[in-house]
Design a protein around this nucleic acid. Structure first.
Lengths: 233, 233
DNA sequence: GTCAGCTAACTGGTCGGACCAGTTATGACC
DNA sequence: GGTCATAACTGGTCCGACCAGTTAGCTGAC
């Protein structure tokens, strides 16, 4: 339990139970203790426990039924993205796996977004992308700044694609991403980060070359992933 | 206000406010009435209002700060996927747009999933895919069954890909999808639904032809999208 | 008049205790 | 042994109080 200082009571309880579920101490189908019992156990009011329960339900980790007990949901069937922070937190192989997956998804979306941008970026968007690429090439930039810029670039592509669902989705990716942000920071150290992919992508988008743009961004994600796996060894 | 009969009190309030926000009656930055005021207005207890607020916060629609007012978040910056049901519900152009986007994302994921499956499907997964393809080709199947099978096929591909994040994501896609399920139902009527893409994909996966598999599933999504847009006219 | 600083009137967060509304297991009755 | 009412659970909602931050307005020094 590190760094849970500033959390709500409900938040603490929710993340405690989430961890218990993810780590398998609570199995799918198991009934959770009743709200009243949990309230007593954690020495908080039942309202707070209820709030925690609602959160777990929103994450798809439990199923609540009035009258019946609250039970752990079948993770494979019902868990949503709310599970991810717990997976990352769990660390080890599990955490590594999910971070690998995250980069894979990012690569997929980046490639598609670049392709779309090549087809329909307007002058204003084009200018924003170029500005971002320029800042990414700044040798004096700090790793954290580069990380942020890289995300901004990603988001700009999603916006250009005009797909609202993906724009919303990129928000989720961001939350997951910056959750374990410091783990990704080494990827942006000045001696390893190379802005060439972004530069190539911007040029391709300007030239309306969808294939090249897509390839460039995929390459970016792939190289990040390769670095990450190298680090893991 | 139709069909809100079986909802929780909190759920009703949350979706009412969500609609207000999505439709722009409440602008980003605007302060919501205080919890006490809302409780009085809707003639419910403050606890219920609080629950609704927590839900809106989880959706990224509002920002809650102890001491300060609860304010509408900047949708472009903070809203997550929880916004989607409201967009669909809003109907009209907006709803149509989001459904179009949904199919686009589905196509992207289907294509990628099929590609991955061609690379790493094992015998058991292969068998499941074939079984699903067979059932999809059943001329006696009802539209709703076909729709479910189509989703199952999608999910199986996500599972095969081994990407946990995408598996979780497909859960979200499912929720969005079956939310407005009846709107998609016409796509599965026996006189329009054609299982050939699934058949082609399965054959390609068996032959380990990633490109062909990907193309087949992309074609499936594209044709569904085309049908959808034709219907909209 | 201007501005710092205090205070009062907000906001959301937590509490406890009550009662309503469903579910489930018990046990008397047939 | 099977059935069915009911008691003892579960979560859902309510009330009213107080704690803990924020904000705005007032006061007073300059």
């Amino acid at each position: 339990m590190t760094q849970t200082a500033r959390k709500n009571v409900a938040e603490k309880i929710a993340s405690t139970l989430r961890t218990a579920i993810v780590k398998g101490r609570l199995q799918p189908g198991d009934a959770l203790p009743s709200e009243r019992e949990l309230a007593e156990k954690y020495d908080v009011n039942r309202s707070s426990v209820r709030e925690a329960m609602k959160r777990l339900e929103a994450w798809g980790l439990v199923k609540i039924r009035q009258g019946g007990a609250t039970r752990v949901a079948d993770l494979l069937l019902d868990a949503g993205l709310g599970l991810v922070p717990a997976l990352i937190e769990a660390g080890g192989e599990m955490g590594m796996g999910i971070m690998r997956d995250l980069h894979e998804v990012r690569g997929l979306l980046l490639g598609w977004g670049a392709e779309q941008a090549a087809k329909k970026a307007d002058a204003a968007s084009m200018a924003r992308l170029e500005e971002l690429a320029k800042q990414l090439a700044d040798p004096k930039a700090k790793a954290a700044q580069l990380q942020q810029l890289d995300y901004d670039f990603f988001q700009e592509l999603m916006l250009i694609s005009g797909n609202q669902l993906l724009t919303l989705l990129s928000r989720v990716v961001r939350d997951v991403y910056f959750q374990g942000a410091e783990r990704f920071l080494p990827l942006y150290r000045s001696d390893v980060f190379d802005p060439k992919h972004h530069r190539r992508a911007v040029m391709a988008i300007r030239a309306r070359d969808a294939q090249a743009a897509s390839d460039a961004m995929r390459a970016h994600a792939a190289s990040a992933l390769a670095l990450l796996e190298e680090k893991a060894r």
